[in-house]
Write a protein that binds this DNA or RNA. Structure first.
Lengths: 341, 341
DNA sequence: TTGTATGCGTTATCAG
DNA sequence: CTGATAACGCATACAA
């Protein structure tokens, strides 16, 4: 038999404790200047009645909901779920929850999801990357809602940012390969249209190679969706070239996994026949055979930093407009000297 | 210069359109019996003022927030993020959003997160698995909040459930290995204390082997945390046994990946030297070398089904108390005949 | 089909 | 330190 008592309200608690609703509210919110006796009486009543405050009413009256919203392209990528994870944990320390929305790299969807979050009354918003609809930033500014962008390092006066340089490690990867004697490079990139991070990486690959005097031929630049299968297919396509590349730069580790697995399958030796690089440093990367040379994206540190920064903004504390983390190269054994004539 | 106009309210829209607040509300909620002319006037005013309804106020007045909450152990496991993804997409079709909370397999945290979700006023709740604190189910029942459990198939009168049988495919895996002539099996399991799915799989492995007359020796039963590295370490430990197993059953695909990579690293042939099985069928599994024999957990179908079921419950429509999906074996080349003397 | 008036459960501003 | 009471912004009976 379930009890037929309707859910207890704040007023019920007040009555049971013989105090005013204001006092109950004070106890609930840990306000100062409440006598020990009163607090105990109220807490007893709360326990006795199994009272749970109503978030909607509280949000309406106080104009905050104790949660921030994050807009992430997808949870499918482990590097994002790891980031979200640390973001959420760190926010918890600030007594703040996290509302997650995904938009599958569709910026119209991102805008729609942003409206939804604002409607929910989030106290702040975190956006990923620098590619957004103008309306999104407009909306945030007009509402004077604390927000932050991350995962990039564009110094845009309109967009506070906590991120890292996507281009620099990409350049270093190319330099690493050139040093090893590779001259025929290829790139497998994620779609770049609505993804400034992928774009920055790709452009940096291409520019560095070109400036070194070994431009990457258009036939060796492949764009595919995110996924193992996609990486594997791209590898097979590259191997049909009259002069296959001796080194392949992948826009992320997952594509690189696909490439490595396809290479093994077709009995190509890594790195003797072909060197391979990734970007992310997923937990799996050091365990590949051979271990994958890649870029250690600071996903977890970024989560902590973003959490602290958005909380600071919400509380009106000063927070740098532009913060940058390191994304160091991790050179492992998937890259080696070129052995081609 | 940002405009200093405070955010427009519903009343402002009404005034601008020359109608009552009730009419604006009707347009907003797509209520029937609104004339075309009025609707257009209101929509124009909304656009002009950039009006965004206040979710808190709306929730308070209507007693629903248009969102359900889901409690998931972690987003770290791709099989969960894929599930969440399809759940969210399908809910969107029902005009329902998803609030995600994680609890890292800590049932006290799960309870705390549940309270938070309820406080937020979610219209329904989805729990994963059958292991929960009694208080959690109590709370849901006392609040008469529509809820659902999933990923398991325990027929508990207290817990409506949409899931699949974790034990059956586990039994089939063991039978498959026995048929191939394997007699020395090993198991690498995820922690089972707060995870009924892992427990069901493990127990089914052990029981089936024992009943067939080839019990798995205690030294060949290893429990490790989720992760590639953990799988690799467990493999190495198993290989130190005087009589190493000829086949290894892994509680999930990620552990199996770790095992396979460690096996390759130590130059063990799969399946000639050791057969390996997983559980999940991650996107990567068919691309391993060799492709991984595993169980195809219906994550995506489960997302759709769970979405439809919880929506039905919220709307008071009949919904089966117990629904089950298939989780078929996928036999690939990581398992083969035993070649041990 | 449209408008009026009340209430949703808290917080916060006052007095005391 | 505590209590009364007016917001908070919208939805919804009810009336017209």
């Amino acid at each position: 038999m379930t009890k037929e008592i309707p859910n207890a309200l704040l007023g019920d608690v007040a009555r049971a404790a013989g105090v005013s609703t204001a006092s109950v509210s004070r106890v609930l919110n840990g306000a100062p200047h409440v006598s020990q006796r009163l607090r105990e009486r109220v807490e007893a009543a709360i326990d006795k009645l199994g009272y749970v405050p109503d978030g909607a009413a509280r949000a309406l009256a106080s104009r905050r909901i104790g949660a921030i919203g994050v807009l992430v392209p997808t949870l499918d990528n482990p590097v994002f779920s790891a980031w979200i994870d640390s973001l959420e944990q760190r926010l918890k320390h600030h007594d703040c929850r996290l509302l997650i929305a995904t938009y599958r790299y569709d910026l119209d969807d991102e805008f729609a999801a942003l409206r939804t979050l604002i409607q929910q009354g989030v106290d702040g918003v975190v956006l990923l990357g620098h590619d957004h609809r103008e309306e999104s930033i407009d909306l945030l500014q007009r509402r004077r809602l604390p927000f932050l962008t991350c995962w990039h390092n564009v110094n845009d006066p309109d967009c506070p940012c906590v991120g890292f340089d996507n281009a620099l490690p990409a350049r270093q990867l190319v330099e690493h390969l050139l040093t090893l004697g590779h001259r025929r490079l290829a790139v497998i990139s994620a779609p770049t249209r609505t993804n400034d991070r992928a774009r920055a990486r790709l452009n940096s690959f291409l520019k560095t190679a070109e400036q070194a005097g070994y431009p990457i031929s258009p036939g060796n630049i492949i764009t595919v969706e995110y996924g193992i299968a996609e990486g594997a297919e791209a590898f097979e396509e590259l191997m049909t070239r009259p002069q296959p590349p001796t080194a392949i730069l992948c826009g992320n580790d997952t594509l690189a996994f696909g490439v490595m697995l396809a290479a093994q399958r077709s009995n190509k030796k890594i790195p003797e026949d072909v060197s391979i690089t990734g970007y992310d440093n997923l937990p799996q990367s050091p365990f590949m055979n051979p271990p994958l040379t890649t870029v250690a994206v600071p996903a977890q540190a970024l989560g902590d930093l973003v959490a602290d920064a958005i909380i600071a903004r919400i509380n009106g504390n000063p927070s740098p407009h532009h913060q940058q983390l390191e994304a160091p190269l991790v050179i492992r054994r998937s890259t080696g000297p070129s052995t081609s004539g």
